[in-house]
Design a binder for these strands. Structure first.
Lengths: 141, 141
DNA sequence: TATTGTTATACTCTATAACTATA
DNA sequence: TATAGTTATAGAGTATAACAATA
């Protein structure tokens, strides 16, 4: 590596995130899931009945893009979309969706553990505070 | 936010990287550049004559995808591609490419500074070590 | 009027497979 | 044989604009 890039946190952040995403996508491929699908399923499992627009807002997915995204999971038999009030859709997991989530939860827990363990123990407790500070969800999205 | 996600470093890593990319893309849009273009220009400026395949290897861009990627920059008048040895292409910046890089360097320096300053001062020195550890470039790519 | 969901569209990124030409 | 570059193709992510139906 040319090294000149290793000074730039923004650059390393991107490479680290890309590598982590590729790693997790690979691990989740057995379930036909990817990083984004998994987060979505976990969110809906945590809050059954959540509307599609609310889920998109929390996950940073625009409503126009939520259509295909949620449809894919619905067609895979993992997601129910029921009309809530005429315009809102109430989302919930199907039994298959819950079973898939359950299995993939274990894989993702391993992934998260492996990720954390690459960080030297002395710095490990700062991983989340630092990433949260960089993300700054309050104003950036 | 549902909070249940804020325990997962992999998730926060992704959101932080997405937010940072959107931020930088926005700042670079005046120059018609995006995060990836900029890294590429900086790499070639650091090492003029570097081959396209070598640049792709360092930046994690597959050779099939480098074609359109580099062509865009060439057509924008920022990049020279000259035949090096019959199969390799030697890359270098045009004067316009260097000028664009120079201007955008300042913008990116601001971006990197703003990003770092969101991290509390006491943790700031660990940003790069932590991200490097997560990335783990030696084996992951 | 503002929100929810949708369609259409477009660009970028990433990935694989197959090919040509060259080392 | 291995490498450099290319073409073709496909899937996914993201963005905007415009629209219908509903609150």
């Amino acid at each position: 590596m040319t090294d000149s890039f290793l000074k730039y946190p923004g650059y390393i952040l991107r490479r680290a995130a890309n590598a982590a995403k590729a790693d997790l996508d690979e691990r989740l491929s057995v379930f036909g899931l990817r990083q984004g699908n998994f987060s979505f399923l976990r969110l809906i499992d945590d809050s059954p009945g959540m509307s599609q627009s609310e889920a998109g807002r929390l996950l940073g997915i625009k409503s126009a893009n939520m259509v295909a995204f949620a449809s894919r999971l619905e067609q895979a038999g993992l997601l129910n979309r029921e009309s809530a009030d005429g315009r809102s859709l109430a989302l919930s997991l199907t039994p298959k969706g819950r079973a898939t989530l359950e299995e993939s939860n274990r894989i993702v827990a391993e992934f998260e553990r492996d990720l954390l363990q690459r960080v030297p123990e002395s710095m490990r407790s700062m991983v989340i505070p630092i990433l949260m500070a960089i993300w700054n969800p309050s104003d950036s999205d």
